[in-house]
Nucleic acid binder design. Sequence first.
DNA 1: CACTTTATTGCAATATGTTGCATTAAGGGA
DNA 2: TCCCTTAATGCAACATATTGCAATAAAGTG
Lengths: 143, 143
Amino acid sequence: MKRHKDLISVLRANNMRITPARRALIQFILNNKTRRIPLREIYDHVGSVLDSVDRSSIYRNLQVLKKMDVLQELNLPKVGKCFQFVFDRKVHHYFICKECGRSSRGKPELFQRIEQALRDVHGFSKANLSVVFYGLCSNCTKD
Amino acid sequence: MKRHKDLISVLRANNMRITPARRALIQFILNNKTRRIPLREIYDHVGSVLDSVDRSSIYRNLQVLKKMDVLQELNLPKVGKCFQFVFDRKVHHYFICKECGRSSRGKPELFQRIEQALRDVHGFSKANLSVVFYGLCSNCTKD
DNA sequence: CACTTTATTGCAATATGTTGCATTAAGGGA
DNA sequence: TCCCTTAATGCAACATATTGCAATAAAGTG
């Protein structure tokens, strides 16, 4: 799922309605697919496109999209709460530096190894899993 | 580090002072070592032991202990924000169910495998790393 | 198009979390 | 024990997030 249209029909399928506020939100998220978008930006933007969507509606819609696994929520130490579009509703996994808050994606190979370990050790095979590593990045590691 | 005394001396070593509020907080956390304590409980308790410690002080102290890797912060879906005492300031890793919010610890073996994969794939060897898995527990997996 | 159902919104009240600043008191030194 | 430095507190203002409820409007039906 990469396109607006697709996302809309998923919403429809789940008996959800396409309101202007929701459309604007989806638009903005898809325009920023590749970024972790700070929450602040989201409601600044959505609140300004239409002449003011209430804060509560924005929050509610973010929760909805999160529950649908369209968005992943990340709490980056310095930046604060962010949302990341999840391509094809597949897994994302991140390294987040506790110190500076920078985040980076793990290599696919890492995730394969982790999945394997999860299967072996815990018999856990559910797809749609997100993994977040909190540690120190190489910059912030002071010995 | 398992005892009050030890924790106190770590604070001292970091040029931090032992105030009544801080003492009460540490006491409470150590009395609940084995649990993930909901934030709510923490400030209800600490706020009542002494006749009222300000909200802001409690938050600030929690942040301090988190930065020292004495506490790990977890955001459990239903329960909300929790804090977990980190034995010996070593890693904790969790499975958190997106649906029901229940969480459980991973087996040590899993973590060893993950550490190994991190070394192999990313050359990432920093200790004191926490790993959080978000997925669906077996109860909430509906096919 | 008019009508009905009910998901979604806006609003207001409330809960939760953060920050700046003047004041207090912990803890080390004389 | 008194004094000094400055970490930590309380307070107030503010920012961020959640919730209940009445009003609105999306979308299916005749």
